[in-house]
């Protein structure tokens, strides 16, 4: 019960942060609020026993992505222009999608139900067998690096591809700018 109350409290802080992001025009404060959002998310992950996910989210979501976004707004613009269209149609679309998703949750088992289908198959197997198989205290580590090592290999491939993509997209930016300046003069 107390956990549910903490969860709901954290949620309301998250929703407030998200609504502030919707209305803010200065991109600097949008990016900072996005960092706050990530940190609150990390807290929520701790209440749901996902400590590994929490510190990854705190490091990656609140750290790296904030830095990347600050870099981007330094290169582009600091302010969002005022919206020209009304938000009624988007709101309608979002409300319908949300209602459909809520309808989808009605069939789901209660939060924390130990007999939910998700708790009955591979999860307990990993918990039971990893003591013998891996002899590592942290089950998340043994699944990540061994039972599901191929997932992690695929993830590494994605990160590598994205890194190459970013390099190709922004490489030579300074050189092109200098040439443009010379042409103008």
């Amino acid at each position: 019960m107390i956990v549910t109350i903490i969860d709901i409290l954290l949620f309301f802080m998250l929703v407030m942060t998200a609504l502030a992001i919707v209305n803010r025009r200065r991109l600097f404060s949008v990016v900072m609020l996005a960092g706050v959002f990530s940190l609150l998310t990390a807290l929520l992950f701790v209440t749901m026993d996902a400590v590994d996910v929490a510190f990854t989210e705190a490091a990656v979501g609140a750290g790296i992505s904030t830095v990347l976004m600050l870099g981007t707004i330094a290169q582009t613009s600091r302010r969002e222009k005022d919206p020209t269209r009304s938000g009624v149609l988007p709101f309608f679309v979002v409300a319908v999608t949300g209602a459909a998703l809520v309808y989808g949750t009605l069939d789901m088992p209660n939060f924390g139900d130990p007999n939910a289908p998700a708790q009955l198959h591979v999860g307990p197997d990993y918990l039971k067998n990893s003591v013998e198989d891996m002899d590592l205290p942290n089950v998340v580590t043994s699944i990540l690096a061994s039972y599901r090592g191929y997932d992690t290999l695929g993830e590494t491939a994605v990160v590598f591809t994205a890194g190459i993509g970013v390099l190709l997209l922004i490489s030579g930016l300074a050189g092109r700018r200098r040439r443009e300046d010379e042409e103008e003069n």
Binding site: M48, D49, A50, D52, V53, T56, E57, V60, G61, I64, S65, L68, A118, Q119, V122, G123, P124, Y126, L127, V139, V140, I143, L144, R148, D151, T152, E155, V158, V159, T161, A162, G163
Partner: peptide, 19 residues
């Protein structure tokens, strides 16, 4: 213990997300 499998999947997803 809570189910570790979703944690692993989401760890992967966070890293792919930042990429």
């Amino acid at each position: 213990y809570s189910n570790p499998l979703p944690h692993v999947l989401i760890l992967t997803a966070i890293v792919v997300g930042i990429a």
